Amino acid sequence: MPSEPVPDSPPQSGESAFCYWFHICGFSKKGLAAAVTERARLVGLPHVRPDGSRVRGWLGGEQPREPVPQL
């Protein structure tokens, strides 16, 4: 029976760093989208409003457009 990954262990083969940290941080997809939206609003970018389906795409390997990676 496989054991649960240890939080401090490196990403598994084929797992992106984004996926690894997403799971470690405990965000839901909607929660991360809300956090990115809030951060964007705070830095003066109210047009940046990802949703849970956008986060799902990022987890699936899509690259977010600027300025999201900096947020």
Rank of each mutant, 00 (worst) to 15 (best):
P7V: 09
V55L: 04
M1N: 12
G60R: 13
Y20R: 13
A33G: 11
K29T: 14
E62A: 06
G44Y: 05
V36I: 15
F22K: 10
G14V: 07
A34F: 06
G61R: 00
Q70T: 04
E38H: 06
K30V: 11
W58T: 01
P67S: 10
V36T: 11
V43W: 00
A33C: 13
S53N: 04
H47Q: 15
P7L: 05
P46Y: 03
P69A: 07
L32Q: 09
E15H: 15
V48C: 03
L45E: 11
A35I: 08
G31P: 09
G26Y: 10
E4G: 05
P46K: 09
G26K: 06
V6Y: 07
R54G: 13
A35K: 15
L42M: 08
P46Q: 09
V6W: 08
E66D: 08
R49H: 10
S53R: 11
P46T: 04
A17H: 15
A17V: 11
I24P: 11
F27C: 07
R39H: 14
W58Q: 04
A40L: 11
C19K: 13
P50H: 01
Q70Y: 00
C25D: 04
Y20D: 14
K30Y: 15
P11S: 02
Y20T: 14
Y20C: 15
R54Y: 05
S3W: 07
T37I: 00
D51M: 08
R56C: 04
F27L: 09
G44S: 04
V48S: 00
L59A: 05
L32H: 06
F18Q: 02
P64H: 00
W21A: 10
G52V: 03
T37M: 14
E62C: 03
P11E: 07
F18W: 04
S13P: 09
F27N: 06
F22V: 12
I24E: 04
A34W: 14
G26Q: 13
G14D: 09
E62V: 02
C25R: 14
G61Y: 07
R39C: 15
V43F: 02
R41W: 12
S9T: 05
E66H: 09
P10N: 06
L59K: 04
A35D: 14
A34P: 08
R41E: 15
V48W: 00
S9C: 15
Y20F: 15
T37G: 11
L71H: 01
E66Q: 03
R56M: 01
M1Q: 13
D8R: 08
